[in-house]
Amino acid sequence: MTILFRRVHIEPEKLREIIRKNSDSLEFGLRFIDFQLGTEEEGFINFLGIDKNRRLAVVNCDSDENESMVLTALSQLQWLKKNESLLKRLFFSENVDMSRVPQIILIGPSFSRKAVAAVQQLSGHDIRLVEFKYSLAGNNDAIMFEEVVFRKAGAGNVVGLSEQPPVPEDIPDNARAGVCRPVAPVPENIEQPVAPFDEITLTPEEIAEFMNFDRKQTL
């Protein structure tokens, strides 16, 4: 059976939530160590992560096309450099390799021609531009990340795909199975199916949790 998905707009908070829970879908081994990190005039770093080589990664996302993301991320790199000693103390336990230039991952629904051209001219930094496509099919949603610009050759990651592209064997199970579903091409005029009023069922464990409740249990 073919599942039809309809591409829809996603709220920035939901996009951030999905990315937060699926850091591995952007790059294997990437782990977030901070969220919404304020950087004075340079705005918020949506996610500060470290990759498998202990290098910092600045991950910014926007639910709409935003040409200024590249410029913002570069100015945030400057802020990271300026505050290196503070970051070392802040993330002491993470053993971050501050000697290496952090990589930048920018996520958006699309990137303008100017943004792509600008990134391709930046030889000194590792910058990935990742486009996402968010879709709905009834109660299920799906998101697909696709790298559109990166110096190293490679296709984008598709999270939770039933017919997944081959992945290296050293990737753990939790990195293979995301919460998201694949996106199939959908004709523009197809209507979004309406979710039926479903009954919320409780598991026996959930019921037991409350059946054992004693209102005087803290005495």
């Binding site: 949790e209 409350f210 409740f213 209102r215 005087k216 249990q217 803290t218």
Partner: peptide, 15 residues
Amino acid sequence: HMYEVEAVYTTMAGA
């Protein structure tokens, strides 16, 4: 009684 507040919240938030 006041102690019921914590009992209810702990159970609900825990579940």
